[in-house]
Structures are given as C-alpha cells and as structure tokens.
C-alpha cells in the first residue's frame, strides 16, 4: 500500500507546523526587513530629491543673484566711470581756473609790488631832491640874496594887477591889525623901510607893518593880512613843485612811462608855465 493514512495525517500536521515556523522565523522577519529597507531607501530618496530641489532652487537663486550682481556691478562701473570723467573734467576746470586766478593774482601782486617800489623810489627821490634843494638854497641864502629877494618882492608888489591890489587894499582897510611881514632872515632897517614904503605906495595908505623871522621860508618874504597872503619865497616854489610832482605821481601806475628820477634835473627846479606865477601869488 503506497498510501499510509497515519503518515498523511502526520505530514499534514508537519506541513502546517512548518508553515507556521517558516512564517514566524523566515517570511515575517525577512519581509519586515525588506519593507524597512525600502521605506528607508524611499525616505532617503525623497530626502535626496528634496535636497536636490532645494539645491536647484539655491543654485537658481544664486545664479539670479549673480546675474543681478553682474548687472549692478556693470551699472555701477559705468556710472563710476561717467562720474570720474565728469569729476576729472570739473577738477581740471577748477585747477585751470585756480591756476589762472593764481597767475592773475601773482601778476597783480607783481604789478602792485613794482608800483609800490616805484612809488617808494619816487617818494624817496623826491624827498632827497627837495632835501638837497632846500640844503643848497639854505646854504646859498645870505644878506645879498635877502636884499635881492626884498627887491624882487617890492617889484612884484608894485606889479600886482589891479584886481588883486583892490582886493588886498580892501582887506587892509577893513582890518585894524598890523600887516605881518615874515622873512627867513632878519631884514635890515633900510629894507624894512623900503618894504614899508612900497606897501604904502602900492595901496596908497599908511599901513602898519610888523616884521617876523620865519626860517621855514628858506629864503623869501611873505606878507600876511587878515588871512590873505602875498609871498615870494623859495619854499613856495618848492612846495608848488612838490605838489605838482605829487599830482603827477598820484595818477595811475604806468611803470614804463614813469619818468626816471633824475636828481640832477630835480636839484634845480624850473617852474613850469602853469606853476610859475607863484612869485607873488595871492592865497586865501
């Protein structure tokens, strides 16, 4: 008999036990392990995908930022270049202007300095010339000169024009104070008398005269009455000349046209036609 019923039953039981054993010790742990691994791999893949997506996003963002940065940089660079160009031009202009201004200032300073120097030279020269002149004339002044001066004064007095004579006479008449005659040196009695006489003759009146010595006249005679004056003196000549030269130098600085100071010609002043009638000038 090929079939044994007890064996069949035993084998069925054995097989069922084996199924349980296999399920318990083989399939369940193996399948659980496979599931766990698959889940882990899936999770890791998802994680990797997420990271990849994030990386791509980051990369895109970085790329975008890079491009933006490039554009910004280029814009800034061009702007800076433009600004530098403008600034350079501005600075150049400024420097040119400053240089021009400095040049002008220096030129002006030079001119001013030259003018000051010229002025100084002129002033000193004038001063020296007048000093020399004064010294010379003072040295020359003496009794004979005084006499000659007195003579000249008297002649001038007589030669006064009618109008001046009238004006002076009027003053002499109205004033009670004596006429003051100033001279650089003590006038001798005869000269005093001559002058007195000349005055009386000129104004046709008895004039009270008072004589005074004034060394600052250098050489000459001055007649003063009630603020009016009739004089002839070298000091007057010199003052007139000084004023004339002073007026000439007061004008605009013309270094080239400015006359060179020649002490030789200045030592002896020659009264110009315009300044000459000082001899018997009438001042108020």
């Amino acid at each position: 008999m090929l079939i044994d019923w007890f064996t069949i039953a035993a084998q069925v039981l054995n097989f069922l036990i084996l199924v349980w054993l296999m399920k318990r010790f083989l399939y369940k742990p193996i399948l659980d392990a496979i599931d766990a691994r698959e889940e882990r791999i899936t999770r890791e893949l998802a994680d990797a995908d997420a990271k990849k997506a994030e990386a791509q996003k980051e990369s895109a963002a970085f790329e975008r930022k890079n491009q933006e940065f490039d554009q910004q940089r280029n814009a800034l660079l061009s702007q800076a270049t433009e600004e530098v160009k403008v600034e350079r031009q501005r600075l150049l202009d400024e420097v040119l202007q400053a240089a021009e201004a400095l040049r002008a200032k220096r030129q002006e300073a030079l001119v001013r300095e030259q003018q000051t120097l010229n002025d100084e030279i002129t002033r000193r020269t004038r001063k020296e010339v007048f000093a020399i002149t004064r010294k010379t004339l003072t040295d020359l002044a003496g009794a004979s000169l005084e006499e000659r001066i007195s003579e000249v004064f008297r002649r001038r007095l007589r030669e006064l024009d009618a109008e001046a004579k009238g004006r002076f006479a009027k003053i002499l008449n109205t004033s009670s104070a004596p006429v003051l005659v100033r001279s650089a040196f003590e006038l001798p009695a005869e000269q005093r008398a001559a002058i007195h006489q000349a005055l009386n003759e000129t104004f046709a009146a008895e004039i009270d005269v008072c004589f005074e010595i004034a060394p600052d006249l250098i050489s000459g005679i001055e007649l003063t009455a009630n603020g009016r004056r009739i004089a002839w003196s070298i000091a007057d000549y010199l003052t007139s000349l000084e004023e004339s030269i002073g007026e000439l130098l007061q004008g605009p600085a013309k270094p080239k046209t400015k006359p060179e100071v020649d002490p030789a010609t200045q030592a002896e002043p020659k009264p110009k036609p315009g300044t000459q009638p000082v001899a018997a000038k009438e001042t108020q």
């Binding site: 054995n14 054993l21 083989l26 691994r37």
Partner: peptide, 28 residues
C-alpha cells in the same frame, strides 16, 4: 517511518537555519 523522520529533519534544518539567519537581520 523514514518519511516522518526525514520531514522532521527538514523542518528542523529549515527552522533553525531561518532562525540563525534572521536572528541578526539587517535593515541596512
């Protein structure tokens, strides 16, 4: 009989083998 005995032997080998292999199962 031999059928049952060899079946038991097979069962033993399979069960113990599975047990030994899956005892230190790795999910890595």
């Amino acid at each position: 009989n031999a059928t049952i005995v060899f079946t038991w032997g097979l069962m033993l080998v399979m069960a113990v083998g599975s047990l030994l292999i899956t005892r230190n199962i790795s999910i890595g």
